[in-house]
Amino acid sequence: MRTGAAAGHHGYFHEAVCYDSDEHLLGVVVPFLRGGVAAGEPTVVALGERNAALVRDAMPDDSPVVYLTGAATYTRPAAAIRSYRRILTGHMADGAAQIRIIGELPAATFGPGWDCWARYESAINHAYDDFPLWSMCAYDVRRTPEPVLADVARTHPRTALPGDRHLPSPAYVDPRLFLAERRPAPPDPLQRVAPRLELADPTASQARQAVRAAAPAGLPADQLADLIVAVSETVSNAHRHGLPPTRMRIWSGTDRMVITVTDRGSGPKDPFAGLLPAGGPDGGGLGLWITHQSCEQVTLSCDEDGFTVRLTAGP
């Protein structure tokens, strides 16, 4: 039986906590966690180091709360979905009637790559809806940019407030509509100058060679290897599912790279492509799934030039 504000709810109960002080945050989170512990529900904290310490200090020492490292949990959107689904599946197998999670995205996700995390916040309304999950996502309004907060309101069906108040969000948008918007991506700082390389209709092999040739010495070898996989899949996808011509551009800094692949098509029809495993009989969407698993930041956008996938690796 489900408890608290989610009592009687079927599927995912998704809330935002937009707080303006430590007291505000704790006023929501501590009762939420205590309620889960009292009900014998799996209760998980995936906050950053500072906020996790605040919560630990406010909770009884013997509370059976599981603390995850927030920054490590939220490295890539598709990987976070995969990890959480594995955790939720395990708790359900153990007989959990409800699972409670409080988490927060690192502040680094609020930059030019925010779009992929906005898509994550929207997609999980569908991705977790087959679990009895009640989760809260914490956002510090003093440090979170206004455009990010606007997306928070559009991707969270509810807002949690101190005093056990749970209000519906009038700005909430169904994930199928939100993910289909294909909003213009804000330029990455590296894109303020001309690209280092530009290729017309490259093969996957040529794309991989170009990335290796342009890679900066400061980009870690494992990130470069993952980026090469992502680029190869993206170029193959553009040839297989997009419309010609395909254009690839590479920007390279001292320790990071930005790569765009554009074709004249309109992108995948499945709004969850890349964030959830592909299920089509033709394997459509598998390339984007691999790309999202391999690359730190994947941004999808459409404009007059067509459909663009932007891949970013490095800090």
Rank of each mutant, 00 (worst) to 15 (best):
M1A: 11
M1R: 12
G4T: 08
A5M: 12
A5I: 09
Y12H: 15
H14K: 14
E15T: 10
E15Q: 14
E15I: 00
V17I: 15
C18F: 00
D20E: 14
E23M: 05
E23W: 02
G27L: 01
V29M: 05
V30Q: 01
L33Q: 01
G36D: 05
V37K: 09
V37Y: 13
V37L: 09
V37I: 15
A39T: 13
E41K: 07
V44S: 00
A46F: 06
G48W: 09
R50D: 12
N51V: 00
N51K: 14
V55M: 10
D57H: 12
A58I: 02
P60C: 10
D62S: 10
S63W: 12
Y67S: 04
G70H: 02
G70K: 02
A72W: 07
R76N: 06
A80I: 07
R82E: 15
Y84D: 08
R85A: 10
R86A: 15
L88R: 04
M92L: 13
M92T: 11
A96R: 07
Q98I: 04
E104C: 08
A107F: 06
G113V: 03
A118V: 03
A123M: 07
N125F: 04
A127D: 01
D130P: 00
D130T: 12
L133C: 08
L133H: 00
W134K: 01
M136R: 14
M136L: 15
D140A: 03
V141S: 10
T144I: 05
T144S: 11
T144Q: 06
A150P: 03
A153L: 12
T155S: 08
H156R: 02
T159S: 14
A160N: 05
A160L: 11
L161I: 02
H166R: 15
P168D: 08
S169F: 05
S169C: 11
P175D: 06
R176P: 00
R176S: 12
R182M: 13
A185V: 15
D188K: 02
P189E: 05
A194L: 12
L199H: 08
L199V: 04
D201K: 08
D201Q: 09
A204H: 09
A204G: 15
Q209H: 15
Q209I: 06
A210R: 02
V211A: 10
R212V: 11
R212W: 13
A213E: 15
A213M: 13
A215N: 08
L219C: 05
L219E: 10
Q223F: 10
D226A: 14
D226P: 08
I228L: 13
I228K: 11
V229L: 13
A230K: 02
E233H: 09
S236Y: 14
S236G: 10
G242V: 03
G242T: 05
G242M: 03
T246E: 04
W251F: 10
S252M: 06
R256K: 11
V258H: 00
I259H: 01
I259G: 01
V261G: 05
T262M: 06
T262F: 03
D263I: 09
G267D: 05
G267T: 04
G267W: 06
D270Y: 07
P271N: 06
F272H: 11
L275W: 01
P277H: 11
P281M: 04
D282V: 03
D282Y: 08
G285M: 04
L288H: 06
I290L: 13
T291K: 01
Q293R: 15
C295E: 07
T308I: 03
R310I: 05
T312E: 07
A313N: 02
P315W: 10
